[in-house]
C-alpha cells in the first residue's frame, strides 16, 4: 500500500504532531498548513478542525486562511503537476500559445486534472525566470524556454513510459 493512502487515524496523529512541533512559533498557522499539505498531498477537510483545536482558533478562521492562498489544495493533485507561468514576461515569449497547446495536448484546462489522474495543470504568476521564458515547473523542477514537446517528454520520462 502506498504511504499516502493513509486511513483517518494517522491523519489525527500526524496533524497533532505537526501542530505540537510548531507550537512555539509566532503565527504558526501557515507553516502548519504547509506541512500538513506536504505530508498528505493536500489539506484534508478533516484536518481543519484538528488544526483549529490545536491553535485555539475557530474552524471558519482556519478554513478562511486555507482557502485564501492559491497554494493550498482541498483535493489531491494528479501524479504530475504542471505549472505554466502566465505573467507578462512569459507572455512576451509566447506563454499564451504554449498554454493553449498544452491544454489541448492534455485535454484539460487550468486547475483541472486529467481523467486518468496523470496530470494536473495550474497557472502560476511568475517563477522568477523572466529572462528565459516561457517558464514552467514540472513536479517542482523549473524549466526555462519551455515548449510543449519538452514538457510532454518530461512527463513521459518520469512516468516511466
Amino acid at each position: 500500500m502506498p504511504a499516502n493512502a493513509s486511513p483517518p487515524e494517522p491523519l489525527a496523529e500526524a496533524v497533532a504532531e505537526i501542530c505540537a512541533r510548531h507550537a512555539g512559533l509566532e503565527g504558526p498557522l501557515l507553516p502548519i498548513l504547509h506541512e500538513v499539505q506536504a505530508a498528505f498531498g493536500h489539506l484534508p477537510e478533516a484536518a481543519v478542525p484538528m488544526i483549529a483545536d490545536a491553535l485555539n482558533l475557530g474552524r471558519a478562521e482556519v478554513h478562511g486562511v486555507a482557502s485564501f492562498y492559491h497554494d493550498f489544495r482541498s483535493a489531491p493533485a494528479g501524479r504530475h503537476v504542471v505549472k505554466l507561468c502566465r505573467a507578462e514576461a512569459c507572455q512576451a515569449m509566447g506563454a499564451e500559445a504554449l498554454a493553449a497547446q498544452v491544454q489541448g495536448d492534455l485535454g484539460i484546462g487550468w486547475h483541472e486534472t486529467s481523467s486518468d489522474g496523470r496530470v494536473t495543470l495550474e497557472p502560476v504568476f511568475c517563477l522568477g525566470l523572466c529572462a528565459c521564458g516561457p517558464a514552467a515547473m514540472i513536479d517542482g523542477e523549473l524549466v526555462g524556454r519551455a515548449d510543449a514537446e519538452g514538457i510532454e517528454a518530461m512527463l513521459g520520462a518520469e512516468a516511466g513510459q
Binding site: 504558526p28 498557522l29 501557515l30 491553535l55 486562511v65 485564501f68 492562498y69
Partner: peptide, 18 residues
C-alpha cells in the same frame, strides 16, 4: 503560499501572523 498581494507590506504582516 502563492498570494501576490502578500508583496504589499500590511497583507504580508497578516500572512506572517497566520
Amino acid at each position: 503560499a502563492g498570494a501576490y498581494v502578500c508583496g504589499e507590506e500590511t497583507s504580508l504582516l497578516n500572512s506572517l501572523e497566520g
